[in-house]
Design a protein around this nucleic acid. Structure first.
Lengths: 207, 207
DNA sequence: CATACAGTTAACTAAATAGTTAGTTTAACT
DNA sequence: AGTTAAACTAACTATTTAGTTAACTGTATG
């Protein structure tokens, strides 16, 4: 068996792990089921990863790194604070759209009062927060943003996006089961990032 | 043993359950540890609740009912859509401040793509969403709000609040451990609800 | 052809887990 | 004091769990 095939197995494990950690959380994910879903022998998982926790950390770190890298790329093409804030929203929005597991793992980590944050992930997370802080400071100095709490803005963005994307697939069945869903509940939200621009930018005082 | 003491035991179980389901999630919570934390015999839990799931549902439903009841009380004292929206924010904010477990359980339920939502809880949740929709419609008809997606507004509110409150206790230790925390990271947010008013109301186009 | 080595596996272990059982204690009422 | 029912419990069971082991495979290298 050559390297490509072995890489494929590791990749299979990572994919299944992302999906299961997102859906069922750390404790809800069992190594047996994970092996089954990844279609590898359970011992193969332990060949590539020290233990369950190491796998979790790997998966979480990889996801957040993707977002941070994408964010930094996007920021290079921006001049104004307004554009930078849009880029901040977009990097979460488009990354989560492509791989919605990240947001779900993040939600759980927050819910656990951060004990599910591996150190390296927390570091990256704080890095993003300080990038956002710089953007908000810049906007304030440019006279277009009002002073606001960075972390509040951050989680309004992340909260809004994560909710929209994680409930996306279930909404139509909820809509059918319950009779009191709001009007647009089942509507597709293709341009939700633009709605977020609207609310957040106006909310920060941009004319 | 009189009724008060037996109520006290059931209450102890509920309190411990809230705390553990919030901190560790459904699967991370073990009945043995729960019994230990509640200081009751494990079998006593099964005397009061059919099984782990029933306990989870009870706890989740009780929490969301508190929020909905509080919301409906607050709404009675409002005239304008703006005040109603503030009441909506406040009912989440003050309830979560008093009992922060609810938000954490909610975050996990969302992360699980809603399979952790018991039916009765989902019903109440949709009830809240339709209340918010009425508020937003009213504001639109009054000419003060722009048209927006109800669920997006809802989760920006809930996301913002849940993040602030769930990370509250850990922030100072994070601040000490990592060197790149943003400026106000460790700041107390007594009036976070007012900051939320600002951003959300302005975001909706209120002058 | 022999040796080495990365990759893979079925079968196993020790510990933890949700839930049960069969019985004991407590308190209220006659 | 005796009866009853609710509240409670220590000890148990069957199952599931994370992680291990020891052996096997294919391939590359000398």
């Amino acid at each position: 068996m050559d390297k490509k095939d072995s890489m494929a197995k590791k990749e299979k494990i990572i994919l299944a792990a992302k999906d299961m950690f997102a859906n069922k959380g750390f404790n809800g994910t069992t190594m047996d089921e994970l092996a089954k879903q990844a279609k590898v022998n359970k011992a193969t998982i332990y060949y590539y990863f020290k233990d369950k926790e190491a796998l979790y950390e790997y998966v979480f770190a990889e996801s957040i790194n993707n977002v941070v890298n994408d964010l930094e790329k996007r920021l290079k093409n921006t001049k104004t604070a307004t554009d930078a804030l849009k880029a901040y929203i977009d990097s979460f929005y488009f990354n989560s759209k492509e791989d919605e597991t990240f947001m779900r793992i993040l939600l759980r980590a927050v819910a656990s009062q951060c004990y599910l944050f591996p150190k390296q992930v927390m570091k990256k997370f704080l890095r993003m927060l300080s990038i956002l802080e710089d953007i908000l400071d810049k906007g304030y100095n440019e006279g277009v943003f009002k002073k606001t709490d960075t972390k509040l803005v951050h989680f309004m963005i992340v909260g809004g996006i994560s909710f929209l994307l994680t409930t996306k697939d279930k909404r139509s069945s909820i809509y059918e089961t319950f009779d009191n869903t709001p009007k647009n509940f089942n509507k597709d939200d293709k341009y939700a990032n633009r709605q977020l621009y609207e609310i957040i930018l106006k909310g920060l005082g941009v004319k």
